[in-house]
Computed example of a mutant assay.
Amino acid sequence: MMLVAGKPFLTVDETDVWFESLQAEEAEYRQYWSWLSESERQTAQRFVRELHRRRYAVCHGKVRLLLGHYLGIAPQAVCFGRQTLGKPFLLDASGGPHALRFNLSHSGDWMLLAAGPRELGVDIEVWDPRHDPESLAGEILAPNELEYWLTLSPAERAAAFYRFWTRKESLAKAVGSGIGIGVASIETTPGSLAKFLGLPKDCGKPSDWHLIDLDFGAGISGAMSRRRRLQSTVTESA
């Protein structure tokens, strides 16, 4: 069996964040494919492009590998359920919800998986030149965020846009509502200090959530939202 290699990109309290490539050699790809459920294989087969099919198989194979590592079971034995709006969760041996929470995001050749004991959500976005922040900012940003964003130079706006976007998406995924929550109603601090300032009423208070920006280097943005606890210890792999 393939073993988990390396360490999490980030650990916050009891929550691990894994930043993984979706590129794989043929032997690795076949191994990941062998771990998929029949439903996952059917989903993969529906992709028209081979690139997207391979990314899906590697992504979900790695999810099974990593979650199986936490659960102490084989990747193919990991079982999932889904909430009403589609957010997946782990099932325990009795078929009920498992205490371990997780969330997955992927973009381009990269995936992000967080796992821990508290409700959480993650988002990763590879900057896409087909997306025009100038035309999307008014729909996605809260008024104060937009005011700040308009003060930035054109060269600074892409990074700020994706920073705001991944923060909002991570919260929407944490509560299991997706972008239907109305991302413009989620307000965060401008600049690099990540904190929620305002949330839709169904999401609780801003102080209920710990927001973390994830730095993957130029051209990739990410964020994690997780239920807050009183003290946090953060470590990052070298």
Results as ranks from 00 to 15, higher is better:
residue 48 V to P: 01
residue 127 W to I: 07
residue 196 F to T: 03
residue 81 G to S: 12
residue 187 E to W: 03
residue 118 R to F: 05
residue 152 L to H: 08
residue 122 V to R: 04
residue 188 T to I: 07
residue 84 T to P: 13
residue 65 L to G: 06
residue 192 S to M: 12
residue 136 L to F: 07
residue 128 D to I: 10
residue 7 K to I: 07
residue 162 Y to G: 08
residue 220 I to Y: 10
residue 215 D to P: 07
residue 56 Y to N: 05
residue 31 Q to A: 14
residue 156 E to P: 07
residue 119 E to V: 06
residue 45 Q to V: 00
residue 45 Q to M: 02
residue 161 F to E: 06
residue 35 W to A: 01
residue 34 S to G: 11
residue 163 R to D: 00
residue 87 K to Y: 00
residue 9 F to H: 13
residue 139 E to I: 07
residue 105 S to N: 02
residue 128 D to R: 13
residue 123 D to K: 06
residue 161 F to R: 03
residue 111 M to E: 06
residue 212 I to F: 05
residue 173 K to T: 04
residue 134 E to G: 02
residue 226 R to F: 09
residue 177 S to W: 04
residue 93 A to T: 13
residue 216 F to S: 01
residue 165 W to T: 11
residue 117 P to D: 01
residue 157 R to P: 14
residue 13 D to V: 02
residue 228 R to Y: 03
residue 141 L to V: 02
residue 28 E to M: 14
residue 124 I to G: 05
residue 25 E to V: 10
residue 161 F to K: 09
residue 153 S to A: 14
residue 37 S to F: 09
residue 101 R to Y: 00
residue 36 L to F: 02
residue 68 G to P: 01
residue 144 N to W: 08
residue 19 F to W: 15
residue 2 M to T: 06
residue 57 A to I: 13
residue 175 V to G: 02
residue 118 R to Q: 13
residue 103 N to P: 06
residue 153 S to M: 07
residue 9 F to Q: 04
residue 52 H to G: 08
residue 118 R to C: 11
residue 82 R to G: 04
residue 41 R to A: 10
residue 196 F to A: 14
residue 153 S to I: 03
residue 81 G to A: 15
residue 115 A to V: 15
residue 29 Y to V: 12
residue 119 E to Q: 13
residue 149 W to F: 07
residue 126 V to A: 08
residue 225 S to Q: 09
residue 202 D to N: 14
residue 171 L to N: 09
residue 179 I to P: 08
residue 26 E to C: 07
residue 214 L to M: 03
residue 11 T to R: 15
residue 64 R to N: 03
residue 137 A to I: 07
residue 218 A to G: 03
residue 45 Q to F: 01
residue 96 G to V: 02
residue 131 H to W: 06
residue 66 L to K: 05
residue 168 K to F: 02
residue 148 Y to C: 00
residue 232 S to I: 10
residue 14 E to M: 02
residue 60 H to F: 12
residue 237 S to H: 13
residue 200 P to Y: 00
residue 94 S to N: 10
residue 173 K to S: 01
residue 119 E to H: 01
residue 151 T to E: 01
residue 178 G to F: 11
residue 208 D to R: 06
residue 119 E to T: 13
residue 27 A to C: 12
residue 205 K to W: 00
residue 156 E to I: 06
residue 64 R to C: 00
residue 100 L to I: 13
residue 13 D to W: 04
residue 191 G to P: 03
residue 130 R to M: 10
residue 30 R to G: 08
residue 186 I to S: 09
residue 43 T to D: 12
residue 36 L to W: 00
residue 227 R to P: 06
residue 135 S to N: 08
residue 228 R to M: 07
residue 179 I to V: 14
residue 142 A to C: 15
residue 39 S to E: 15
residue 100 L to C: 11
